[in-house]
């Protein structure tokens, strides 16, 4: 299974980015291959509007089944993620990616 994180860096110890649409990086962890792929999303700061749909589209291209983030996506982004069938877990905004992953495995994150 592939699990996506919104983060401020590209490693296990990076801090999570609580924002969805304007997150700095998207990390995707493939637990079968034990492998990370990351996407540098920092260009998004140049977008005046519509950051949410744009980031969700990028996320979709990366093919995760689960998204772990902080506050949760806004309305438009939520629509895209729902259409894409991605399950969203929130409340990991102040953790590191590793802590967020563990919290998810232990069912300590809230569904969106």
């Amino acid at each position: 299974m592939k699990i996506a994180f919104t983060a401020k860096g590209t490693e296990w110890n990076s801090e999570m980015d609580p924002r969805f649409g304007r997150t700095e990086y998207i990390l995707v962890y493939d637990d079968e291959k034990d492998e990370f792929t990351s996407y540098d999303n920092r260009e998004i700061e140049n977008e005046a509007h519509g950051a949410g749909p744009k980031t969700s589209q990028q996320l979709f291209e990366m093919g995760p089944q689960v998204l772990i983030t902080g506050n949760g996506p806004g309305g438009n982004a939520a629509t895209v993620l729902e259409k894409a069938g991605i399950k969203i877990f929130i409340g990991a905004g102040t953790m590191t990616v590793k802590e967020a992953f563990e919290a998810y495995q232990n069912n300590n994150l809230k569904g969106f």
């Binding site: 649409g21 304007r22 700061e45 140049n46 977008e47 005046a48 509007h49």
Partner: peptide
């Protein structure tokens, strides 16, 4: 005002 400017100020 835009999401972009607010994000910039907050960042």
């Amino acid at each position: 005002n835009s999401g972009k400017l607010v994000a910039k100020v907050k960042k």
